[in-house]
């Protein structure tokens, strides 16, 4: 028996979400009276793998295979499903990001295991197995019963605290059986912006809306994000106008994020925007309209024009940092 957790790495280092997944899986395994086992696909060094033991993982299975250098959902599904069977998994835990969202439903059909996606908490009860998940774009939580023997959970990013619980961990190398699998997609080109903090990984996000008035006014937003070690984002009209790239659009149809701090500047806070950011732990709003709905979602607010407030805020932050 086990709880299997699918970790993700980027250029050989685990993403922060992998440790959140490990923490969650360790707690879930405890509840289910079984062991958490991590799966790591691709080249990850021993020191990096060892980090998983800090979060309660007792065994890590690593798989390196030429056929797995490209992320192909069918191939990865097969590898993880085979492991779930050989390790008698009671539950599989993945991230609720694009990778997890592409694997979880395929695994569900292949293993006939029920999925709960966008989960932020441990199950409320075990028999029947009930877990809360995000619904109605953040306007509700649904209590979902998973009726199958094996369960699949995708964990919302930055929703589960890291729990340090150092244990002894064994690392096992496993072979992947890829016989009969021919990846069907061919990668033609890849564009990667290196050195840029991923929006989904950022703990602090500074976001601009139409109240910024022009794409030429983004320098203080980038400066503020830089000072806070955060990422930049934007509202839908801004990305639709082409002021900022689509990848930065946060909101119902864009990215759904849950940073520790979200700073909304010149964003009125339409329902659709709030749907993408309402899971943030703290929201700061800067807007010249005191009746803007963003202030209903925010804990801290400044009523004022961004062009006036932002430079002062940047200066004050610089002073605070050098103090």
């Amino acid at each position: 028996m086990s709880v299997l957790v699918y970790t993700e790495n980027w250029n050989g280092s685990f993403k922060k979400l992998s440790f959140e997944l490990a923490s969650y899986a360790a707690r879930l395994a405890e509840m289910l009276n079984t062991n958490p086992i991590a799966v790591s696909i691709g080249q990850v060094g021993r020191d990096e793998l060892e980090k998983l033991s800090k979060y309660g993982i007792k065994k890590t299975i690593t798989i390196e295979h030429d056929g797995l250098t490209q992320f192909d959902t069918q191939t990865y599904t097969r590898v993880i499903a085979d492991l779930a069977n050989s390790q008698s998994a009671k539950a599989i835990v993945l991230s609720n990001n694009n990778t997890g969202k592409s694997l979880a439903p395929r695994l569900s059909v292949r293993l006939k295991a029920a999925v709960a996606s966008g989960v932020g908490q441990l199950p409320e009860q075990l028999s029947p197995f009930v877990v809360k998940k995000r619904a109605f774009s953040g306007n509700a939580q649904a209590g979902l019963e998973l009726k199958t023997e094996m369960k699949i959970i995708t964990l919302a990013q930055n929703s589960f605290e890291l729990v340090e619980k150092p244990v002894d961990m064994v690392i096992e190398k496993a072979e992947a059986d890829l016989s009969g699998i021919i990846p069907k997609a061919t990668v033609k080109d890849v564009e990667i912006q290196t050195g840029k903090l991923l929006l989904s990984d950022a703990e602090i996000v500074v976001s601009g809306g139409r109240g910024m008035k022009s794409p030429d006014n983004w320098a203080p937003i980038e400066e503020l994000a830089g000072l806070l070690n955060g990422a930049t984002a934007c509202s839908r009209p801004v990305s639709d106008e082409g002021w900022r790239p689509h990848e930065e659009h946060t909101g119902q149809t864009g990215k759904i994020i849950a940073p520790n701090l979200y700073v909304a500047i010149g964003i009125s806070g339409a329902t659709q925007h709030l749907a993408g950011i309402s899971a943030s732990k703290y929201i700061v709003a800067i807007n010249n309209d005191k009746d803007a709905p963003i202030f209903e979602a925010a804990q801290y607010g400044i009523v004022g024009d961004a062009s006036r407030v932002l430079p002062r805020l940047v200066e004050a932050l610089k002073k605070a940092k050098s103090a």
Partner: peptide, 29 residues
């Protein structure tokens, strides 16, 4: 079906916004 939705609940209401004087960003920090 493999799942069943038992109940919905609205999200926790957020506390009221604390407003900060635009001339005093130090307070926000």
């Amino acid at each position: 079906p493999l799942t069943r939705t038992l109940a919905y609940e609205p999200p926790q209401p957020r506390p009221a916004c604390k407003f900060i004087d635009p001339d005093n960003p130090e307070q926000l920090i």
